[in-house]
């Protein structure tokens, strides 16, 4: 119960931070606020029993804030960033939100109660991993055993996706440079 209340307040903090990000004028403040939201998410992961994810989330958030600050600093700070694409008045927006939640209310009721182990109700693969993971792989960290032994094919796909994004960023940023070298040679 304490965990639920803590997660509730952290989520409220994240939503308020997201509103600040959307409405603030200064881009640098928006990026720093995004870092704060990410650290809140990391604490939530730690409370939910996922320390692996908490470590990854903190490190990833630091690097993404550094990359975004590198992109925004010295550029465009004077330009007003808060102008929206079209002037949406607040009353139709509220009506839209009301009808949206009215329509997804049956779906929300189908969700399991928070804190109930949904994966034990039927024969799922999580049961197999939890019961036999240590004997079959010898790794005490079951998450590590899943991503590197049972589902290592996923990890190979992840490596390929990350590699593709590295190649993509390099090709986007090096295009003119490479063409010039080609012309020179």
């Amino acid at each position: 119960m304490m965990v639920e209340i803590a997660i509730f307040f952290l989520l409220i903090f994240m939503i308020i931070g997201m509103l600040f990000v959307l409405e603030i004028e200064n881009l640098l403040s928006a990026v720093v606020m995004m870092g704060a939201i990410g650290f809140g998410l990391s604490v939530i992961f730690l409370l939910l029993g996922a320390p692996d994810l908490a470590i990854v989330q903190i490190a990833v958030e630091v690097i993404s804030v550094v990359i975004l600050i590198r992109a925004t600093i010295h550029r465009d700070i004077k330009e007003r960033a808060d102008e929206s694409l079209s002037n949406i008045s607040s009353i139709p927006l509220l009506v839209c939100i009301f009808f949206f939640f009215l329509m997804i209310y049956p779906a929300l009721r189908l969700l399991p109660t928070f804190g109930e182990p949904v994966f034990l109700n039927f024969y799922s693969s999580s049961v197999y991993y939890l019961r036999d993971g240590f004997h079959l792989t010898g790794a005490p960290n079951i998450v590590s055993a899943i991503i590197l032994d049972f589902r290592a094919y996923d990890t190979l796909g992840e490596a390929i996706v990350l590699f593709t994004s590295v190649i993509g960023a390099l090709s986007i940023l090096r295009y003119r440079n490479r063409k010039k070298e080609h012309n020179a040679s």
Binding site: A50, A71, P117, S126, Y129, L130, I146, L162, I172
Partner: peptide, 24 residues
């Protein structure tokens, strides 16, 4: 707790960083 969503999300977080860097 259930380890399987943690294993899926662990890769998703890092992929999200790669996508963010590509968009930047």
């Amino acid at each position: 707790v259930d380890p399987l969503p943690q294993a899926l999300v662990l890769t998703s977080v890092v992929i999200g960083l790669g996508v963010t860097a590509l968009m930047v």
